[in-house]
Design a protein around this nucleic acid. Sequence first.
DNA 1: CTAATATAAATAGCGACCTATGTAAATGGT
DNA 2: ACCATTTACATAGGTCGCTATTTATATTAG
Lengths: 157, 157
Amino acid sequence: MTDWNLFDRPAPLVNMASRSFLRLGERRVKPHGFSIGQLPVLYLLRDGKAMSQRDLARAAKVEQPSMAQILARMERDGLIQRTPMPGDGRSQLVSLTKAAKAKMPAARKALHRNQDHALAGFSAAETATLLDLLRRLNRNLDRMVAEEVEVGEAVEA
Amino acid sequence: MTDWNLFDRPAPLVNMASRSFLRLGERRVKPHGFSIGQLPVLYLLRDGKAMSQRDLARAAKVEQPSMAQILARMERDGLIQRTPMPGDGRSQLVSLTKAAKAKMPAARKALHRNQDHALAGFSAAETATLLDLLRRLNRNLDRMVAEEVEVGEAVEA
DNA sequence: CTAATATAAATAGCGACCTATGTAAATGGT
DNA sequence: ACCATTTACATAGGTCGCTATTTATATTAG
């Protein structure tokens, strides 16, 4: 009665959409030797830039161990290389290999073809509204996630 | 330039929101001995109903192996039980244990407290709009996922 | 009634995340 | 200089999901 349909609330709808995006994206990008989680890294390092793991994690908005795993797989697949960070023995600079850079344009195109098919039937205004509402939703969620961590830590202390 | 901000497109925004919802939901529900992926099962079997794995997967909109894993963990944790399906030796009827049913109300309350904090600052109309746009987005995505599977299979044949 | 096919689960293996913890290299205050 | 803290990564372990494949039981066609 209260939730007559399991999926007719924000969290499940968002979750479904996310899973679909991931499935579709994976199909597009996999034939080119990439996978979805690597896209932020590819994007961030695209024109020869080099960054630390920490900065990559921050910029991609994932936790450090998640980024570590992504980078491990990318290294395994010959997509990145690491060089020591000058002046800090703890850190390394990560950059794309030539192979990765060579394969990017095709993958990019494949994704572009895919992208925004999802928004078929949406007017420009509706698309803008959706993006705006999602940004606001994310602001709320980010705050909630952060707050709870604080609480958690406060309890510990 | 084209995508000046990595996250300012539908897929990443939806993905971020989904991850945040999952993190928050997990925190709420874990102390009660459940986890997020189990919620559809709990919901579907709530008042003593019994269903096959196949029907649970369909209703929860996940693939069969995903549901198999969810059920395996729920069985491990004493949340479900399986009884043979009368008249079909391949299948079993899944139902909630007393323990699971006993723990549900508290978990439900915990989630409710959480829920829709996410929509703080949203007017009723905005919430409705968001839900509507997400439903439409999902319709598109579902179609795309289904189409591609067809294509894939057609190529094989 | 048997052979081919379809269906229900199980299994193997992978990717994207997370939390919690450990380790080694800076850094900062005394 | 020295010890405590912070910081950057690494590692262990877990959940959610997917694809591909196998196994066992129905079902259907000939």
